Simulated assay, not measured.
Amino acid sequence: MPELPEVEVVRRGLGPHAVGRTIIGVEIRDPRSARRQAGGASGLEQMLVGTTVTAIARRGKFLWWRLADPDGADTGHALMTHLGMSGQLRVRSRAAVPAHDAASPGAAAPDAAPPDVDLPADLRAPAPSEGPASDPVRHLRIRLALDDGSHVDFIDQRLFGGLWTSPLVTADDGRTSAWGSPDDLLPRDAAHIARDVFDDAADLPAIARAIRRRRAPVKSLLLAQDLVSGIGNIYADEALWAARAHHATPGQALSQVRAHRILRACRAVMERALAVGGTSFDALYVNVDGRSGYFARSLEAYGREGEPCSRCGTALRRQVRSGRSCFFCPRCQRRR
């Protein structure tokens, strides 16, 4: 499923097209993608039509849209977006969206944001990258029509993701709630999610101490969204390889220095992934313009069973723990 870098790529790509735009229509093609919404599909439409997107924020793998009413006041709710296993947000320009179906094969790439839209640096469109366009859209679930004639399509093949609104609450620590957030408010449905390693308010030494208080394997702790959010199977394996740590090492067996080193490795690995658009193994994850990420070409451990470790040449191994594959170097990542 998309992890922190992939969701952040989507957030940055979506911002120039959505921030400052008014949602003028909501088309629910599959009510299952609005199942978390109070009042179901009709409730989602009532909550969104006529609102203006003022910001797009992210904590871990959760993305949300801040909304203002026609008078410019905050609605007190945010539009939650979770991509699940295969969710995509795709922007379709007016020219690229046939009136009968925005999901037509061969749709063109979206237009650039209007030059007069003043956006913060972290919401400006990333530099274009080379790479294959995604497959034609076949699993459109929800379409949001914007006032400039464009659409944002939520596409989800496996139906684990969804869109819904959630009331805003204040972050426990009173600090800016998330990457891209204008204040300390965040959706109630994301309040239980810990800060991620990209968050300026994340206290990495404190997270390291929390990891050391638990007996579970360190990889399981990196995946525990109540400790640190946004890390999934791919980046956990990559960070543990970079930090030379075995995935089954109990948190209590780590020193503070070593636990902190692992968290810094998580951040460094995901920063590199973000720079190349994330990791795409298939057409299930793409950016809002339909392009894939290329970090799969730089993976050191994940998915490389039997291949030589780039550090020592030892064949990488794969173990399954708690139903998850763990890829590691048996020489560089000895269990202590």
Rank of each mutant, 00 (worst) to 15 (best):
E3C: 01
L4T: 00
P5T: 02
P5A: 05
E8D: 12
V9E: 01
V10A: 02
G13W: 02
V19F: 03
G20E: 03
G25L: 02
G25N: 09
I28R: 07
P31Y: 11
S33M: 11
R36G: 01
G39L: 06
A41Y: 08
Q46A: 15
Q46M: 07
L48M: 12
L48I: 10
G50I: 09
T51H: 12
T52Q: 15
K61Q: 08
K61F: 03
W65Y: 12
W65M: 15
R66Q: 12
A73T: 08
D74I: 01
D74M: 03
D74R: 13
G76N: 02
H77Y: 08
A78G: 14
T81P: 00
T81M: 06
L83K: 00
G87M: 03
R90M: 12
R92A: 13
A95I: 05
A103I: 00
S104L: 13
D111K: 01
P114A: 13
P115Q: 08
V117L: 07
D118T: 10
D118Q: 13
L119Q: 07
P120T: 01
L123Q: 11
E130Q: 11
G131Q: 02
S134Y: 01
D135T: 14
L140E: 14
R141I: 03
G149L: 12
G149D: 10
S150T: 14
V152W: 09
D153C: 14
D156N: 11
F160R: 00
G161V: 05
G162K: 01
T165G: 01
T165I: 02
S166Q: 08
P167G: 07
L168T: 10
G174I: 06
S177H: 06
P182A: 07
L185T: 15
A194H: 08
R195G: 13
R195K: 10
D196C: 03
D196M: 05
A201S: 14
D203F: 09
L204K: 08
A206E: 13
R209G: 10
A210Q: 15
R215H: 10
R215Y: 00
V218E: 09
S220D: 13
S220Y: 00
L221R: 08
L222D: 02
L223N: 05
Q225W: 05
Q225D: 12
Q225I: 05
D226V: 03
I231L: 14
L240A: 06
W241A: 06
R244S: 15
V257R: 15
R258Q: 14
A259V: 04
H260L: 14
I262Y: 05
R267F: 04
R272G: 12
G293R: 00
G293F: 00
R297V: 00
S298Q: 15
A301F: 08
P308W: 01
C309P: 02
T314R: 12
A315C: 04
L316I: 08
R317G: 05
R318C: 12
Q319G: 08
V320P: 06
R321K: 04
C326N: 15
R331G: 14
R331T: 15
R335V: 13
